[in-house]
Design a protein around this nucleic acid. Structure first.
Lengths: 331, 331
DNA sequence: TTGAAAGCGCTAACAC
DNA sequence: GTGTTAGCGCTTTCAA
């Protein structure tokens, strides 16, 4: 039989459809003997419950949607991997949406999915706060690497991390830093900038910002040139991709890294360890971010825990020291 | 209203539910005037058709599942991106499943999804042929980078590509090559080996195989050591990750690349351009593979085209020459 | 413990 | 062109 239903199973087992249903969803409320008969018949026919029929009634879909702002960025794959693992562990299905750095696409896709998923995990959402609040009022939402009061979030502790970055650079004698900013509507970009500036002020050193830049390797050229005009001795790029592009451009222009200028990135992507010089970068347990976000979402989707105040998980970062940072030039 | 239904819209617009349904699914079969009234009422209430109810009746879910054998491998990002783009363009939802290199997980997850998706695109499936045939008998299936008679597939032309690899190496004076094989149940590994061997025979040079290896950087050490025992002057690794690991291990052992030995990979992943030396590799339009596979799947899912003989798309590869290959040592 | 029956939201005959 | 109605496969009262 192509797609046997409970009717087929019921007929085969000589019971009512409701009994079949119970045998699957509330096995305790069926006598052991009947249950066995039903399960045997189901196995025989190759019956599998139709999740849509189930969802139609229950409103629960056993599905979560993950929206990433840019799937081209390898950084997100760690998040995706963590999310997928966690979802799978609870037999949830993970739907993947790439917003292609467009708030419009992001919003439209979310609306399209609102009635077919149990909730959303949003990675580095580019949506304005109001949109997020509106979506959160329709479905459970968990933010990754973004915060908004009232909505649960999982974030790497960038305040702490940026402090470490500045300390690292200060200890190497740098007194003038520049941050190559990420996209205008990126919460992370704003957070990093503010954390860096605060840390720099604490050390009484100069910190400026250039940008915004789309954080891709291809933008590294423009970013590097922008950075050079500041005469800063250390460049903190919005992420590793941009940093890699910056390093390439600097090489092209004959600027040595780290002898003439130090470069740092964020995310600790796979490639940052392979490029030359290898990249000093602020990493963290990205897989864990994905995992934790889905875990919170699943908690929210189950009846009990919904009332608690929205969790705000802060995961530790780690500064990975590599070849792209060194002592400030003595000039 | 939390989730208005066609009943609510029908009541608000003063029409029957079927009219509302038609206004959405077959707008031409409703008078312009009524349609407007319905759409206005729907917009007013914030109505959105419930895809599950729709799927329950029609059996079509507007969803495709993509299964990748290992999400950690950056190579798959490209496939995923292409698949996601194509699915989104047709307002299809993409479900992502990571098989974690386990045929068991792959099979179980597919079975779990059989009744909730319109079809599967399987990237480098590790399943035995029989399983694939069985799945294809339940739902449309398109293979990526794997072939099986009777099932549509999209594959990069590795026969052609491997020939180019061998020609490249022969022209550099290499007479003894070694292939570091991928996983035992990888169709791609078998294909590459067979194509490389054939090409090598055609040139009358020696080609051997070592392995299998799990194609990760971490396996490069063992793979490199295995390769060295053969005294081959050129190493063709199953993919770029393995090749990168091999290069690292060779450096550790004081073997120079490419002076003492040449190294090649497959996939042209992002990092292969950044490592030192940069990696000669067989690339191709991976995004296109993902896109084409989903496109075929969508075709299959629409009533008309189902009868045609299963398409077998062969996309061109390109050999990207970089720093890791050079003249054979004169010894 | 089990069965009969209503209904989740939507679509497609079939009437009018 | 539009309304009536019977399901799609499942869950869950309500009775027995």
């Amino acid at each position: 039989m192509a797609h046997p239903t409970i009717y087929d199973v019921a007929a085969a087992a000589g019971v009512a459809t409701s009994t079949v249903s119970r045998a699957f969803s509330t096995p305790t409320r069926v006598s052991a003997h009947t249950r066995e008969r039903v399960l045997a018949a189901a196995a025989e026919l190759g019956y599998r419950p139709n999740p849509h029929a189930r969802a139609l009634f229950s409103g629960r879909h056993h599905t979560v949607a993950m929206v990433v702002s840019d799937i081209t960025n390898p950084h997100y794959f760690e998040l995706i991997r963590g999310a997928e693992l966690r979802a799978k562990a609870s037999e949830y299905t993970l739907v993947l949406v790439n917003a292609e750095e467009s708030p419009r696409i992001e919003y439209d896709q979310i609306q399209r999915l609102v009635s077919s998923v149990d909730g959303f995990v949003l990675a580095a959402s580019r949506l304005p706060d109001e949109n997020l609040e509106q979506i959160a009022s329709q479905r459970p939402v968990v933010l990754m690497n973004r915060e908004l009061p009232g909505i649960p979030s999982v974030v790497l502790d960038h305040v702490q991390g940026c402090r470490q970055i500045v300390e690292h650079l200060v200890s190497l004698g740098h007194r003038h830093l520049v941050y190559l900013a990420g996209p205008r509507n990126s919460w992370m970009a704003a957070t990093r900038w503010s954390a860096l500036r605060t840390a720099a002020e604490g050390h009484g050193i100069r910190m400026e910002r250039v940008g915004p830049f789309t954080p891709k390797v291809s933008q590294g050229g423009a970013a590097a040139d922008g950075a050079l005009t500041t005469n800063a001795t250390a460049i903190v790029a919005h992420n590793d991709l941009l940093a890699i592009g910056v390093v390439q451009r600097l090489a092209q222009r004959g600027v040595r890294v780290p002898e003439d200028v130090s470069v740092l990135g964020f995310d600790n992507i796979f490639a940052s360890d392979l490029c030359t010089p290898s990249l000093t970068t602020l990493g963290g347990a990205h897989v864990e971010v994905g995992r934790a976000a889905v875990e919170i979402l699943l908690d929210m989707a189950t009846p009990n825990g919904k009332t608690r105040t929205p969790p705000r998980v802060l995961l530790p970062t780690e500064l990975v020291l590599r070849g792209s940072t060194g002592a400030a030039p003595s000039a």
